[in-house]
Write a protein that binds this DNA or RNA. Structure first.
Lengths: 332, 332
DNA sequence: CTGAAAGCGCTAACAA
DNA sequence: TTGTTAGCGCTTTCAG
């Protein structure tokens, strides 16, 4: 079929009348080459559309200028800010980000990890902490710098930039209580981090001498539709509900819409709190009170850590809790 | 620093008492190795956490089992369905998807392309058609199978799975007209594909002896907030407006919310049409009439094409228009 | 079923 | 400033 697939630096070298090394230098360190040679090489490169084979280069120099990120299933709005910041920060430093989607499953995650490690990236960013012991072993054995994000653990694989889901639960519970709400409900995705928020919430409820809040679980990913359905189910079972803490802003939007469809005033008859502070949160009517996590900072920090380590600098504070913030708007 | 970074198949071979070739076979073609050897290799691999260096393998075999996708800036909800389907379909066939974000800029796109081509993926999926002549040249010269998506062009680089933006504009215009709306407005992102939809819309308006619809442009990415602001601006300037065609469902949601905040009934006083058919469209109140594009089909088809070509099969119908559909719900 | 030799395309290290 | 040599870790090819 098409034979055109391959120029090598040797071909370019021949065409430009120089050696392969000079071509390599002209491409990677143009300042180390005479202007004449540089011009000739550039002309040939541009004429042929030559792009060097990065795999060969990385193999030789063991520097891929590649960072891999593993994100769960669809790149929902949740991780978007983090990924964008990560991508941008890496880009500024001359690294490329490669995103692998894992799905929520466990074995799929190990398979993705294997695929990632095979490519020998300069660093690996995990959204969420690594639970599978097999995954941990692979990562550790690979010697590749790893940053876990979006969570906290006393036993990180390597570096960590996250926040406490349990404390989010506690804070939201306290916030709702202090606003006078006494019948809150948790509408939540059924994943492990969400459960930790729930535990935090219930723990705080106990501290405040309140009953445990009922919990309604929905399948991930959370959607506007499941938010509406969730509120319906909640109100059927527990009409006195006066507040809902949703595990995502999308869910909260669904609750808002369902409340409006039922003629319920927000926050008068029902308070709503989201999680994520998506762009839409501030523009809703009423504006959504939600928990903000600084995804940009998480992404930038992760990038910084990886690049520092990849370039031989040591990271002084490799475990960071970036916290969170309850953004009080109109809905609660 | 850490020396652990590297086992090679030779190390594994030594530990297992076999040759490197046998290790390679045990990993890639286990059926071609005796059970005894296989067991020994597996034991060592598992004990050491060895993951082979895929760059070396790909370099030798020139098969990376990697497909790269270039998406504009943030992976907004728009391409999400396509990317997810692409990822899944590739995964099923043993390929990994690597996503590169380019930003909307032109030169950034060329830089991303260079980074992608360097890695010699088995295929490249472009969201949107390639305009930069430099980008085209690079792609062509690389000999890598390319699928352009999300658009149609008479001059694709290679393969194409898309739909006509102009026809979407025409169809929506006709749809609105046939429903009796006579003062439509276009609320649209300011990008080239959006402009083609606008042109289609205006062309159809002319055909129907209508005035051209006023156009309000907002910066990409389109947000709920810009939808609200957009409707405000529109109603200020043209109170008789009876329909808005939004260039995304998010924009449409913003319009819906602003309309509701102003006490306007939808579709009674104002009809709203979106684009994208996000999950939320169907769950809104009123449910959103929108243009559905089959992102899943686009992603799956792109994956199929790439893999077919990567594995030496020829693609019989390399240019496909997958069309679109106006989903009539309550908002228009 | 197993192994030895060769080389994918590039760049580190050295020499000129 | 430029070129030569060697080899990154794997797999193709061919021989046993």
């Amino acid at each position: 079929m098409k034979k055109s697939a391959g120029f090598t630096i040797h071909d370019i070298a021949k065409l430009a009348g120089v050696s392969a090394m000079t071509v390599s230098r002209a491409i990677n360190h143009p300042e180390k080459v005479s202007v004449a040679a540089l011009a000739r090489v550039r002309e040939v490169v541009s004429r042929t559309g030559f792009v060097p084979n990065g795999m060969a280069g990385s193999l030789r120099s063991s520097r891929a200028r590649l960072v891999a990120a593993a994100v769960p299933s669809l790149i929902g709005p949740v991780f978007q800010e983090t990924i964008r910041a990560l991508n941008q920060a890496l880009d500024e430093r001359g690294y490329q980000l490669m995103i692998g989607q894992s799905g929520y499953g466990d074995s799929r995650e190990d398979a993705l990890l294997d695929a990632i490690i095979r490519r020998r990236p300069d660093g690996i960013v995990l959204t969420g902490i690594m639970h599978s012991p097999e995954g941990r072993r692979l990562l550790l054995a690979s010697g590749i710098p790893v940053v876990e994000t979006w969570d906290l653990t006393p036993t990180p694989i390597d570096m960590l930039v996250g926040f406490s889901h349990e404390r989010i639960g506690q804070s939201v519970c306290h916030f709702l209580y202090s606003r006078g709400y006494r019948y809150p409900v948790l509408l939540s995705a059924n994943d492990e981090r969400a459960h930790r928020r729930i535990d935090g919430f219930q723990g705080m409820a106990r501290t405040l001498d309140q009953d445990a809040a009922p919990t309604y679980l929905v399948a991930a990913p959370t959607t506007l539709g499941s938010g509406r359905a969730g509120l319906s189910a909640i109100l059927d079972k527990r009409p006195q509900t006066d507040a809902v803490f949703c595990s995502s802003d999308m869910l909260a939007l669904g609750v808002l819409i369902e409340a409006q469809a039922r003629g319920l005033t927000v926050p008068g008859q029902l308070a709503v709190v989201g999680l994520g502070d998506l762009e839409l949160a501030a523009s809703l009517q009423p504006a959504l009170t939600t928990v903000r996590i600084d995804g940009t900072r998480m992404g930038r920090t992760a990038a910084q850590y990886i690049v520092d380590r990849a370039e031989g600098r040591s990271v002084s504070e490799p475990i960071v809790d970036i916290g969170f913030e309850i953004i009080e708007r109109a809905s609660a």
